[in-house]
């Protein structure tokens, strides 16, 4: 995508780039509910993806789909910023047909999925590939469990790395 196109994309209109600071700054309007200063490597890595999924054409999935809504994208951006951990790669972002958005990690024997239906209406699930345990919870205003899940995933990686070293 060209620089000019990025400047005109839906996500950029919502999060215009402030060139002076090199950061993404939220557009503030009567309808914006989430303020984000996207400065982490995750946010920078996912900026173009957020641009893409908020600019999808209607019917993008072959049915009656719509692009990811600005409010879902803004909330996801804020959540991603809050969850940032330098030792964990950025998540995948998957659009829903109805303007919703899912954040996903599949690594270190954990599947973590965070389905954002709207700001503060979130379903999160975690599957432990080793034990088979599956947990699904509804979240509204306290997202600390997600940080704990990421911490567990990071710890699992450390365990795996240790086990790998022992085998060698």
């Amino acid at each position: 995508m060209s620089a000019a196109a990025q400047q005109n994309s839906a996500y950029q209109r919502y999060f215009p780039v402030d060139d002076r600071r090199g950061e993404v700054v939220p557009f503030t309007s009567a309808t914006s509910r989430v303020r984000v200063t996207a400065a982490s490597p995750w946010s920078k890595a996912l900026e173009s993806r957020l641009n893409a999924i908020t600019s999808l054409p209607k019917g993008w999935n072959g049915y009656r789909s719509v692009p990811v809504s600005f409010t879902c994208a803004a909330f996801a951006a804020q959540l991603i910023e809050r969850l940032y951990d330098a030792s964990v790669p950025p998540p995948a972002l998957v659009p829903g047909a109805d303007g919703t958005l899912q954040i996903e990690w599949h690594r270190n024997q954990y599947d973590i999925e965070v389905d954002i239906l709207e700001p503060y209406k979130v379903f999160a699930s975690r599957y432990d590939c080793v034990s088979g345990d599956f947990t699904e919870i509804a979240l509204s205003d306290d997202f600390t469990v997600l940080a704990e899940w990421l911490k567990d995933m990071k710890s699992a990686r450390a365990d795996l790395a240790t086990a790998g070293a022992a085998v060698v």
């Binding site: 999924i53 999808l56 993008w60 999935n61 072959g62 995948a92 998957v94 659009p95 996903e104 599949h106 690594r107 270190n108 024997q109 954990y110 599947d111 590939c129």
Partner: peptide, 12 residues
């Protein structure tokens, strides 16, 4: 949609 619905899965 192969562009939007496919993710990398390191576990598998």
């Amino acid at each position: 949609d192969p562009e939007q619905h496919v993710v990398d899965d390191d576990n598998r």
